[in-house]
């Protein structure tokens, strides 16, 4: 177990070292948006498709879509801020 986790950590470290800041932020953004897409349609949305429980008064299926929209906004904002930092450095 310990060996596997140290290998994963090593792989991640190498990946991070070899990536520019811009490349990394785009990569993270891509993963987050990919997950959002997958969880807004089949099969990811299946997990959150029920009417109950009500969350802050909204059915789970509705609350989930609102949550994903907000998460998408945060992801875009993060990408924009990191892009802006990059241009300023130049």
């Amino acid at each position: 177990m310990g060996e596997v986790s140290s290998m994963i950590i090593f792989a991640l470290k190498t990946l991070l070292q070899n990536m520019t800041k811009k490349g990394l932020s785009r990569w993270i953004f891509g993963v987050v948006m990919g997950l959002i897409t997958l969880f807004l349609i089949w099969p990811g949305y299946l997990l959150f498709s029920a009417a109950e429980p009500l969350i802050l008064g909204f059915p789970l299926s509705f609350a989930w879509v609102i949550f994903c929209t907000l998460l998408g906004f945060v992801a875009l904002l993060g990408l924009y801020l990191s892009d802006r930092g990059e241009t300023k450095d130049l």
Partner: peptide, 16 residues
């Protein structure tokens, strides 16, 4: 009903 949520879902993906 919930079919209408598709209108919100596609917007957040589609703008990217």
């Amino acid at each position: 009903g919930a079919a209408a949520f598709y209108i919100i879902s596609y917007g957040v993906i589609g703008i990217v």
